[in-house]
Structure formats: structure tokens, C-alpha cells
Write a protein that binds this DNA or RNA. Sequence first.
DNA 1: AACCTCCTCAACCGCGTACAA
DNA 2: CTTGTACGCGGTTGAGGAGGT
Length: 279
Amino acid sequence: MRCAVLFHLLESSIEAVVAWQRWSGPSGGGGQNSPRVVHLCSLNFSRIKPDFRSANSNKKEHEKKKVKFHTKKGLWTKEEDRLLIDYVKVHGKGQWNKIANRTGLKRCGKSCRLRWMNYLSPNIKKGEFSEEEEDLIIRLHKLLGNRWSLIAKRVPGRTDNQVKNYWNSHLRRKLGINDQNEKRVYFRQSSKQVKAGDDHHQAAVDPSPGDGITSTETIEITVDQSTQQAIDHRVLNDTQESMASTSYMTTSWIPDADYELSTLAMTDHFNGYSSFDLA
DNA sequence: AACCTCCTCAACCGCGTACAA
DNA sequence: CTTGTACGCGGTTGAGGAGGT
């Protein structure tokens, strides 16, 4: 019994760390996607530039205005698609900003990339989501939250945009989630900081559909110091074990995505099924 | 048939990091 | 170190279609 509780707390702790990573980034949403790295024991902020936004904003405004006069917006026509497909056949993916010059297509590079990645690429599966895909998305979302790119990487043939849209239009309603009553669970730790410099020791965890918590409930779990140390120790050991066969151990730096997929495997283990089923 | 409402999803937007010059 | 460019991500928007009245 005590063991089961410990595992539960351990799982919660892992999810809290993942959630904190997700929630602690600079506001605006974009920063959590690129290959950010986290330190195994102490999270390191040195790679995050303090005020990069202001440095870039003027330049980007200028860029935006410049582009606005020349680029077309809105839905793509078949002819535009054909031009883009022909371009990729010849030049491959990348260099999206050069497409306009090379093909006469009046679209910005960003738009071209998006069109290819989300629609034209032959690897994309179209049509209805299967029950297996749906189940997979639900489970992955439970663990990773709105990290659509990470989720999409584990749903073959589906793009982050497809997964995101499917979640927002189908699964949210199916699971009874809406903006007003999205569940948010808080873990309070009495003696151990989850987040560097955070005196309140709180980490918000994404809503977990189907976990039996009603929509308006808030759960607070208080963990005493010794228990927390045991959890920390166990988390560290298990994480290191899971990484033991990889080169990550040589530096103890882990790419963000791999860290989370490792976490996924661990939590799957505690849930009673293997993450290999997910692939 | 006309109008309205709701839903879906492709596309846009803002912001982030990486990297080369 | 700064600047410019490229690329990637999540949140949001809005056109267009479906269904109801």
C-alpha cells in the first residue's frame, strides 16, 4: 500500500516537473518547442536569453510590413499547390523564403512551409482519426499537455496542426473539457522547491481527462520533507537508469523532448502498460 | 428558399531558439 | 557581441460548409 502511494506520488512528481517545464517558459507560447535542454538535477537557465523579444521586435515589424505588400494570404489554390510541390521536388524542403523568387508564387516562406508541412507533404495521413489514434492522443496529451509537436511525432502521419485541431474540435468535447472548467491540479510541496526561486512550491499540471477529478476540483497534496527526499532520490535514480544506455549520461544534459519521452515511458510503466505500445 | 448558428480546420500570427555573418 | 535570417511551435482566427429553424 505504502509502495503504491509512493509510486503515485512519484508519478505526480514527474508530471509536476514536466508541467513546470511547460508552464515556466516565457509567456507567449512559442519557447517551449525548440530543442531546449534541461539539466537532470538543477534546471539551467543560461541558454535562455533574457530579453530577446525586444531586440527582435522592431526588425520583425519591419519585416512584416515589407512582406505584407507582396504576399498573398488566405486559402491556397490548386495552382499554388502545384508550384509548391514542383519546387520541393526539385529543391527539396527548406529555403522557404526563396520560393517566391524562384517560382513566382506570391506567398511568404512561412506560409509555404506551413502549407507543405501541414497539407502537401506525402507523409501526411488524411481522413478520419482512428480509435487507436484517438486513444493515443488522449494518453499523450495527459502526459505532455498541449505540446502538439511532441504528440504528433508519436502519431504516425499526423501533423501537430491536425492533432491540435482534432483535440480542440472533437476530443475536448468528447472528454467534457471546456475553457471554463478545465481542470488544473496543484501540487504543494512543503519543503522542496519544484521550481528554482519559487517560494510557493507550486507546479500547475495540465488537465488530466478521465482521472476521476471533477471539473472544478483543485487538489493539493502536501508532502513532508522525508517523503519528498525519497521521491527526489527515486526520480533521480529512475531517470538515470532509464538514460543509462544512452550517451546523455556522459554530459547529464538531456534534450527536452527525449527527457519527456523518457518520462512518458516511466509513467506508462506505473500505469501498467508499456510506452512501446504507443509507437 | 432564406437566414441563422455552430463547427471544422487551414492558415495566420507572435514569439521562441539556432546559427551564420 | 550584435544583427539578420531561417525555422519551428502553440494559440488564435475566420472562411466555408453543415445543419437547424
